[in-house]
Design a protein around this nucleic acid. Structure first.
Lengths: 333, 333
DNA sequence: TTGAAAGCGCTAACAA
DNA sequence: TTGTTAGCGCTTTCAA
């Protein structure tokens, strides 16, 4: 392997001078600098970032702990996060954990001395939160937030759920089913609160058998959907707590020969790109900034890293929801 | 930061003994070992992987250079790659480059001393290929391959294109349009060859204005589709070189009030998960192993890393295509 | 503007 | 079974 020592020898300078050319070129006389640069070129030298990190205690790397890419939402956020990070000179180490896996990114993250942590997959009272806090590594949550404190960017989920529920109520739906992930997660809890509150305000009774809090795997969604369809009478509308769930739900309904929205209305959350496809046209509530939630998260994290104000105000960003009424919801005839 | 020195002091042993407990526990007397483990626990010690890497010259990290996650295909492969790698104890650094960007992962990869390289985004005669070869870093290509040599896993693209073209011909289509990425990429070149050859064998003339080789951004796909629809007469079928392109194409066609497949048939390649959705039902040719292409790539790369047979046979894996006839293609009436 | 020397936290060789 | 010593390739003082 070519090291700075080799370059130094060839350029007839000391090894630290090579380092200076890299990190503080102005402190080296132009003539010397050119000789060093030439030597680097000739030898095909690449500075060893590992060695540099050991000294500087920074890696210019962030760790992204995201939900699975099977969920289009996380594909979109991951894409924008990796891009944003890269444009600011940071590499991204990615972990895509399944919901109910115990996330074991921690040791790896700790040992690797990443400069920052971008987390989606946390529960409201996740035990990992305490461990993270102890590390003092700058950390930003996106899409989900811890019960108390933290830096985060999330949709105003309670309001979003209100808007969507209101929409269904206005269409005349009363037998509204609800398929959600478990409410030990802020996103799902807040959406549930918004839903329940709006239903209560409208004096519409919830039908307990129509409310499902399940894992987000397609199997579990399928199971819940099948149960709903088997009810007599079945729901006239199903509110799904993410677009990805809504799509699975829709798939199953259609595969049984039922029509959306003629036989049953479907609505989702997040407004992922796919939802606006002509063949899908899913009614959903997202944010005009949803595409850029990842970007916001990454940008803020990197600011936190570089400012390193220990006692800075927590960054808590709430995105405004936007209701997109498309073709999977219809008035009750 | 807690270092092995601190642990050593607390456990009243020398620092290398701490290291031994980590790397070769059997070589340490049980009693001593326990004392060390206890000290680690009490201090909340995590070994510094950066320092370890500097010595061992391995990082247990692979770099994944993938196409954008906007393409569902890459979302699926990325998911399986990151999972496979993790299950074998490797971290993944991800780069999602856009097609026509000059990929600048190279410096970062070189400096970081990743143990292996998983590449999708390469052209047939990509100049980066030579640079990679020089580094001696184990490398595996997936989905695309270089013109000569290399380790790769790809679909048998030429055969896949034949099967799909044959399908359209059997339905009676003759005015078949073709939307493809540029053919400086093996995947697109091979699919083109299969298409052209099958058309020639069937004595069906290609209509040059119906053949588009463009970038894969949705803008360019839109532009090409619009041009096709404006033709008189328009094509009766459009073959798109990826499912992602087919979906964009379908979106535009439908947004103009045309019906798929009644007015125009659409077919794609890859069989991404979305294609089998009831609301989409895209006819496409993929592989039963397409979901696991990423897995195959990751597993083989890690074998290459760990065997480190310098002169091993190149691993060149061709996946068998499977035609999935769904509902976006129909017989010409 | 440059060089000499020290040290980041670890592993690896050797000696005891 | 354990300790001593050296060194991975850098950056960072401090002197010259």
């Amino acid at each position: 392997m070519i090291s700075s020592k080799d370059v130094a020898k060839r350029a007839r300078v000391s090894q630290p001078t090579v380092s200076r050319v890299l990190n503080n070129p102005d402190s080296v006389k132009a003539e010397t600098r050119n000789r060093v640069l030439e030597a680097m070129e000739e030898l095909g030298y690449y500075p060893n970032l590992i060695a540099r990190s050991l000294v500087t205690n920074t890696t210019r790397t962030i760790a992204l702990v995201s939900g699975t890419l099977k969920n289009g939402f996380f594909a979109e956020t991951t894409d924008s996060i990796v891009h944003s990070a890269k444009s600011k000179g940071y590499k991204t180490i990615t972990y895509f954990e399944d919901e109910d896996e115990v996330p074991d990114f921690f040791d790896s993250v700790m040992g690797f001395k990443v400069d920052g942590l971008l987390l989606s997959l946390i529960k409201l009272d996740d035990p990992v939160l305490e461990r993270i806090k102890k590390t003092k590594i700058p950390c930003m949550f996106f899409n989900r937030k811890p019960r108390h404190g933290g830096n985060f960017v999330v949709l105003d989920n309670q309001l979003a759920a209100k808007m969507l529920t209101q929409h269904l109520l206005e269409l005349g739906h009363q037998r509204i089913a609800y398929i959600s992930g478990r409410t030990d997660v802020s996103t799902f809890l807040d959406r549930k609160l918004g839903f329940e509150q709006t239903m209560a305000e409208a004096n519409v009774n919830l039908i307990p058998e129509m409310i499902h809090f399940i894992g987000t795997s397609s199997n579990e969604v399928e199971e819940a959907t099948v149960k709903l369809l088997a009810m007599d009478p079945p729901p006239t509308a199903i509110m799904c707590v993410t677009d990805t769930i809504a799509l699975i739900c829709m798939d199953i309904i259609m595969s049984r020969g039922l029509r959306v929205p003629e036989d049953i209305s479907i609505a989702g959350f997040d407004d992922i790109r796919l939802s606006s496809h002509q063949a899908i046209q899913l009614t959903t509530v997202g944010s005009s900034d949803m595409q850029t939630m990842g970007e916001i998260a990454a940008d803020n994290l990197i600011e936190l890293i570089e400012l390193s104000e220990v006692n800075a105000e927590p960054r808590q960003i709430l995105l405004q929801p936007v209701l997109n009424v498309r073709k999977t919801t219809a008035a009750l005839s």
